[in-house]
């Protein structure tokens, strides 16, 4: 049998085709695209306003002043922006339940990657940009201590942290292979994401433990802010290493369940 390159690598090679597809799709619905950008701006502004009103009324949130809260909001916005790029994952339970997954299984592709990349959502890009602008605003307007290297480590942590919320979510969606209607567990799980917006270090230890190990949402924004403005570079690197270990475990678990799930896949019966 003629050996071809591994399916995963191939997807990155043909990534431009997926992007072109996404651009075409967006250009079909320009109004939706612009409304969505407006919505992103308003959402970020609302969180900033929320912290402003709260801190004006009660003072700093423990060790978190308004400047850090702005940074937190910036990192969450970037994180959710990256998430939004692959938001089609939301439909995975439905794809499994109704047999829509078939169309990805009959092509020489990695079915999961193909499904996600074929539906890239470019509306995420303005959101990521808004997040970056918020970070720039925070770093230039508030007296926050940071170094160039802490900025790099925080940036890498932020970039990778998207996977720490995405992979458990994707894994939850895989339950559809076993239980059919997994949408409700998925919807329950997504509710927890609101915790990303909070400075989790000020929460009780049990919360910190859960959001570090079980559902590692602490890496989405809290840890990047700490790495950028509070911790030493050594601690930052250590946290980054921990993050990489967690992501590796998550990827392994997802891959394992995906392969198991495919064996059980019923493709909407006969």
């Amino acid at each position: 049998m003629k050996f071809r390159e591994r399916s995963i690598v191939k997807h990155f090679r043909i990534l431009p085709e997926y992007v072109k597809l996404a651009v075409k799709r967006e250009s079909e619905y320009k109004l939706g695209f612009y409304t969505f950008i407006f919505h992103q701006l308003v959402t970020a502004a609302i969180w900033l306003l929320f912290w402003k009103v709260l801190i004006n009324k009660i003072g700093d949130f423990g060790s978190w002043n308004y400047g850090r809260m702005v940074l937190l909001t910036g990192f969450v916005t970037i994180n959710m922006g990256m998430w939004l790029t692959f938001v089609f994952i939301w439909r995975l339970p439905r794809q499994i339940l109704t047999g829509e997954l078939n169309s990805h299984l009959i092509k020489p592709v990695h079915p999961f990657l193909h499904m996600i990349l074929q539906h890239l959502n470019l509306r995420s890009l303005p959101r990521i940009l808004i997040g970056v602008l918020i970070l720039i605003y925070a770093l230039s307007h508030f007296e926050l201590q940071y170094s160039r290297w802490s900025l790099v480590v925080a940036g890498v942590t932020s970039f990778l942290s998207f996977l720490t919320s995405f992979m458990p979510f994707a894994t939850i969606c895989l339950l559809a292979f076993w239980i059919g209607r997994a949408e409700f567990i998925r919807d329950l799980f997504i509710e927890l994401f609101v915790f990303q917006n909070y400075p989790l270090t000020e929460f009780p230890t049990v919360f910190i433990a859960v959001f570090t190990v079980v559902i590692p949402l602490i890496f989405s924004a809290t840890v990047p802010v700490l790495v950028l403005t509070k911790l030493s570079l050594g601690w930052g690197m250590l946290l980054l290493a921990g993050l990489i270990i967690i992501i590796s475990l998550q990827l392994w678990l997802f891959g394992f369940l995906w392969n198991r799930g495919l064996r059980r896949y019923e493709s909407y019966g006969g």
Partner: peptide, 17 residues
């Protein structure tokens, strides 16, 4: 692809295959 011209889907298949 439901929302885009047929030719764009064909081009994606060209890349995939």
């Amino acid at each position: 692809e439901f929302d885009i011209p047929v030719m764009d889907s064909f081009k994606l298949y060209q890349a995939i295959y």
